[in-house]
Every structure is written in structure tokens, then in C-alpha cells.
Design a protein around this nucleic acid. Structure first.
Lengths: 256, 256
DNA sequence: TCGAATTTGTGCGTATGTATC
DNA sequence: GGATACATACGCACAAATTCG
């Protein structure tokens, strides 16, 4: 009969988590410091340290060196609607998703350059083995919604199709066109689209770009667009914080 | 000029991670034990401990008390295809997804009972405030694919629609019918479907049911089916390991 | 502007319990 | 039973960041 883990750190974590989730401690409130935990609960520094680490890793708290450990404000989840009806009059940006509500300030930073497509991209675009010459346009984007970095996207478009056209390097004006529009302007009809959805812990680069706490969960979205003949013409990978965004797919919109 | 974090533990973690990802250390291989790390790198136990904790939390290693720390076998990702074309001849199970490849042994454990729908479910099904009487059929399912617990689902069907019909409590034979078929058998046409995709760290209950390591990332899928009039008739929440499953949505199937 | 106090982050050494081999 | 390894817990020290008088 094992005694159900009466570990010191687990008890303290539970007590503090309880206070956070019950609302007794509100976002921004300061949690007991490590020395305080030692005194309050009569434990060593290593236990106090572990307690702090666990609360932080669970996303409940945020530790600031020199200052203290605070209850973290958890953002309201925002729903991003993935739209498979490829409207030619798409008013949206080149974003993977449309925000259902309006009135958001969306900022987009983009850099494009010709590149040799990496392995997984070659597979998705059904390309021949890599040569020396660039064969895709690689575009990196960071979306900011209401001042918050929200989505980091890298997309690859086949150079054989887009070479020398406005699709190639989106300027300020082209950014506001949907991908279907952009391809239509060079005579390519987007007829199909497939999304693959993964999820994992954010890597360091994403932690920095999206300004999420280390250890955060992110959605990883891989989408590929196809033309009328079923040939892939563009593929992209987007990363977004799973704590901030819910993805929505479907044929009818939820009303809530 | 900050000196790029020359922390002891970070260096060792990086070195071991490199060996794992390069394939020098294969799944099942034993990593240096904590005492070995201390000797090999000339560090204290606390650093060796931290190294071990990080590798485990990243899902790269697995620590077994009394035995050692081993390179974890990461499962091959399986793609689950969400099909919005609600075929009446659906050969699939009541699973949320179809496995694209065939030849898998799928086991399904199901328990159903009448219940009073909880708050979020009431919202999704647009129900009136809760009364005393049960108003939904609550069905809990655990899917095993090839012997591995893979998907944990709770679904709620409006009792007002399904009451006293075979939809109510699926028997062994009904399990193999798709949800569209089941509702059609009682005269309800499923015309729409919406999926919401979230991701987060698995809670203890899910860790146990899905047999994933603590701290694992899971997809949380909330789907709702609507009838011809756009009224919701069924909603469900599915949890699956994000390490084992990629979700696929779209109008064409990927060929890879 | 400076310095003192506080707090987190890292690192060292030791001890004990428990699981595995 | 003994050796090994992980998990928890104790103690201490110091660097870096922050806060505040």
C-alpha cells in the first residue's frame, strides 16, 4: 500500500494551485517567494524551488528574476476560422485564418527570397530532387493581431509557376489579397486545400517570436494549395499559440 | 553583451540531444546515468538531475527508477483524416476520424447513460438552462488502434431527438455505423459539422487512459453536428495524443 | 547615482527512500 | 542481499536582475 505520494512539493503546489484557480490569488498577484515558502511550510530551498518550477511549467505562474513570482494572466482564447471556400473576393489578408470578429488591428511583417526547397516541402509540392538553383519563393511572415505576435508562417511557392509575377514577392498592396486571388492574377485557379494539424511544445525560436512562455503548447499547421489538376502550387507552415487560439473547421459556423 | 548562457546543464543537454537526434543513440539505448554524468562532465548532482529532467520533459528520454534513463521510442505519427463529406455509406466507425490506411485493428469500449448536460455542452447544443431531468445521452468511448489506446471521446446527443431509438445506446452492431447513418435511421439528416481544435498538456486522467507520458501534448477536438435546419443534434469532445496523431482537414487528400 | 536588500537562477555537496537488476 | 539508479529532500553559496531608499 503506497501512501498516495505525500510529497512535500506536491502538497504545496496543490495548495497554491487551489488558491490560483479559486481566484483567491488573481492574475498579477505575487506568489510567496522561495524564502517565504521555506518559512511558511518549513521546507528546504530545493522544495521551494521545485514548487516554483512546477507552477511555472504549468503556465499558472511567471517568475521574474529579481522581482518575484506572479500569477499569470491567461489570455482569452480567440477562435480562428479556417475557410475552405476559396472566395475570390476574399477580403482577408494572406493569413491562414480569418478572425471571425472584425475591428482587429492586424500587422504583417513579410520577407521573401528565392530558395532551394527543403526535403519535407519538396515532398508536399511533389518536386524533383533538389538541384543547385532556387526553385521556390520562400516567404516568412509574422502576424500581429492588436499588437500581439500571433502567427509565424513560412510559405513556399513554386518558382516555376510564380516566377516573375506579382505573386513572387508580395508588396504592401498585394499583402491584402487572399492567396486564391494572388494565384488567379497569374492564371492559376486554386481548387483544393489540405490542412494538417499538429501540436507540440514551442521551440526556443517560437518562444521568442510569439512571446509565449517557454514550454508553451503551439498548433503547427501545414497547409497545401492545389490547382484544378490536383497539382500542389503552394505550401506553408504556421505556428500559433494553442493557449491563445482555437482552430475551427467546418461547414457551418458555431453560434457561440 | 550577454554571454549566450554558457550554463553547464544547457551544454550537456545539447550534447545529449544531438546524439539522440543524430541517431548515434537509438531508441531504447541507455543514456549516461546521473552519477555517470557527474563523472563524465565533472558536475554536481543537481546539474545531472536538471539535465535528466529536461530531456524527459522534452519527450526525448524516459527515466526508470532503479534502472536508468533511456532514449524514448517516439511513435510514428499517424494521420487521421477528418471527413466532412458525410457519406451515408460510411464504412468507418463512430470514430471522429477515418484512418486513411486500412488493415488496422480497432477496438472500441463504450458506455452510455442518460445525463443532464453540463454548461459548455448546453451552449453548443443551444439548450435551455438545466433542469432536474436528464436531457442528453452521454456516451464515453475509448478507441484502441492496434492495441494502443488512441482516442478518448465523450459525446452528447439530444435526448429529445434520439430518445427511445437505436441511436440512444449503441450496441455492438450499431457501433460500426457512422453518425450520419445512425441519425438517418431515425429520420434526422446530418447536414453540417463544425470542429474546434485546441491543444494542451494532458491532464492526469488522460495520461492514464491514453498511456502517454506525463506532460504530453494532446489535441482536444470539439465537434458538433447540425441538422438540415442548422440545429445542433450532437456534440462531442475527443482527446488524442499529439505525438501520435496528425489531424487532416481539406478538400483533397495528400499523396504523401 | 549609488548601494543595500530581495528574489530568481544556477551550482555544489550530502542524505535517505525506493525501484530495478 | 547487494549494487545501481532514480526521486525526494536537506543544507549552502554565488551571480544576475530588480526594487527601493
Amino acid at each position: 500500500m503506497t501512501e498516495d505520494r505525500p510529497y512535500l512539493y506536491a502538497k504545496i503546489v496543490e495548495e497554491l494551485r487551489e488558491k490560483i484557480e479559486s481566484g483567491e490569488l488573481e492574475p498579477g498577484d505575487q506568489l510567496p517567494s522561495r524564502p517565504e515558502i521555506q518559512r511558511l511550510y518549513g521546507v528546504s530551498n530545493s522544495v521551494a524551488l521545485k514548487v516554483s518550477q512546477i507552477l511555472v511549467s504549468e503556465g499558472l505562474a511567471e517568475a521574474r528574476a529579481g522581482s518575484g513570482t506572479y500569477v499569470r494572466a491567461r489570455p482569452k482564447r480567440r477562435t480562428l476560422v479556417r475557410n475552405f471556400t476559396l472566395r475570390l473576393t476574399d477580403s482577408g489578408s494572406s493569413a491562414v485564418f480569418d478572425l471571425p470578429e472584425q475591428g482587429h488591428q492586424v500587422l504583417l511583417r513579410t520577407t521573401s527570397r528565392p530558395d532551394v526547397a527543403p526535403g519535407p516541402v519538396r515532398e508536399r509540392l511533389r518536386m524533383d530532387p533538389a538541384g543547385e538553383e532556387p526553385d521556390v519563393i520562400r516567404t516568412e511572415s509574422l502576424f500581429e493581431v492588436d499588437g500581439v505576435p500571433s502567427e509565424k508562417t513560412v510559405s513556399w511557392e513554386l518558382l516555376a509557376i510564380t516566377g516573375g509575377t506579382p505573386v513572387m514577392i508580395p508588396g504592401k498592396s498585394e499583402n491584402l489579397l487572399g492567396i486564391a486571388d494572388r494565384f488567379r492574377s497569374i492564371g492559376v485557379i486554386i481548387a483544393g486545400c489540405v490542412d494538417q494539424v499538429d501540436a507540440r511544445i514551442a521551440i526556443a525560436e517560437e518562444v521568442e517570436a510569439l512571446r509565449v512562455p517557454p514550454g508553451s503548447v503551439v498548433h503547427v499547421l501545414t497547409r497545401t494549395h492545389y490547382d484544378l489538376d490536383g497539382r500542389p502550387v503552394e505550401t506553408a507552415e504556421s505556428v500559433l499559440s494553442a493557449e491563445r487560439y482555437t482552430l475551427t473547421y467546418g461547414e457551418a459556423l458555431p453560434t457561440s
